[in-house]
Simulated assay, not measured.
Amino acid sequence: MKKLVTILIAVIALSFNTTANAQGTIVDVAVSNENFSTLVTALKSADLVSALQADGPFTVFAPTNDAFAKIDKSTLSSLLEKKNQKALANILTYHVVSGKLSAKDVVAALKKGNGKVELKALNGQKLTVMQKNGKIWLKDQNGNYSEITATDVMGSNGVIHVIDSVVMPK
């Protein structure tokens, strides 16, 4: 378990400048990282930017551009349209949990929960965090998995954990 945490922290150190990012909100952190440009576009389309700039704290499981690229282009384009703002907001709020859960907190919860813990997302649905094959994963309510590839990207109002796939609510 300690080895896993060490690996995750090393990935963060190589991928992100967490000291500089801690100076702004989680939205500011996302805006400042080109790997989150699709997420930022989606947040703007869903009119969620101001909500995620609030005091929080929040834990955001943030899909990268590559994660969004796994979604069919026409589906993604459709979700970004004004008429689908509510559906997009439901998907995006499924990636956010109230409270600040650091990697250390998640690992402790996994240990207490025998490798699995359920979290309630802001949209009211449950996400399952689990340890599988030496990695930490999110499992959505449809049975799909997303690997947490980097952790503890700090913002002034919460923390971002980077994921490699978009999780989908029911």
Rank of each mutant, 00 (worst) to 15 (best):
2 K>I: 07
2 K>L: 13
2 K>S: 14
3 K>F: 10
3 K>P: 06
5 V>Y: 02
8 L>C: 01
9 I>L: 10
9 I>S: 07
10 A>F: 08
10 A>Q: 15
10 A>H: 11
11 V>K: 13
12 I>A: 13
13 A>C: 02
13 A>S: 15
14 L>M: 09
14 L>I: 04
14 L>Y: 04
14 L>N: 14
15 S>T: 12
15 S>Y: 01
15 S>R: 07
17 N>K: 12
19 T>F: 02
21 N>T: 09
21 N>W: 04
22 A>I: 06
26 I>H: 04
29 V>S: 10
30 A>M: 10
31 V>A: 01
35 N>V: 14
36 F>L: 09
39 L>E: 05
40 V>P: 02
41 T>M: 06
42 A>V: 10
43 L>Y: 01
43 L>D: 04
43 L>S: 06
43 L>M: 13
44 K>M: 05
44 K>G: 09
45 S>N: 08
45 S>I: 01
46 A>E: 06
48 L>C: 06
48 L>M: 10
49 V>E: 07
50 S>A: 15
52 L>H: 00
54 A>W: 04
58 F>G: 00
59 T>P: 02
60 V>A: 05
61 F>W: 09
61 F>L: 10
62 A>G: 02
66 D>I: 03
66 D>R: 05
73 K>V: 13
73 K>D: 09
74 S>E: 13
77 S>Q: 11
83 K>D: 14
83 K>V: 11
84 N>H: 07
87 A>R: 10
92 L>A: 06
93 T>F: 05
94 Y>T: 07
94 Y>E: 07
95 H>V: 04
96 V>Y: 03
97 V>E: 08
98 S>T: 12
100 K>P: 02
102 S>H: 06
102 S>A: 07
103 A>H: 00
104 K>M: 01
105 D>L: 03
106 V>K: 00
106 V>T: 01
107 V>N: 10
107 V>K: 09
109 A>V: 03
110 L>F: 15
110 L>Q: 12
111 K>G: 07
113 G>Y: 11
114 N>F: 03
118 E>T: 15
119 L>N: 12
120 K>V: 15
121 A>T: 15
124 G>W: 09
126 K>A: 15
126 K>Y: 15
129 V>W: 07
130 M>K: 13
131 Q>V: 12
132 K>P: 03
133 N>T: 12
134 G>E: 06
134 G>V: 08
136 I>N: 00
136 I>W: 00
139 K>C: 07
140 D>S: 14
141 Q>E: 14
141 Q>K: 15
142 N>L: 14
143 G>C: 06
144 N>F: 11
145 Y>L: 14
148 I>D: 02
149 T>S: 08
150 A>T: 08
151 T>R: 00
151 T>P: 00
152 D>R: 03
152 D>F: 09
158 G>D: 02
158 G>N: 02
158 G>R: 03
159 V>T: 12
161 H>P: 01
162 V>Y: 04
162 V>N: 05
162 V>E: 04
162 V>T: 15
165 S>T: 14
166 V>A: 07
166 V>M: 10
166 V>N: 13
168 M>Q: 12
168 M>F: 12
169 P>K: 12
169 P>F: 08
170 K>H: 12
170 K>D: 05
170 K>W: 02
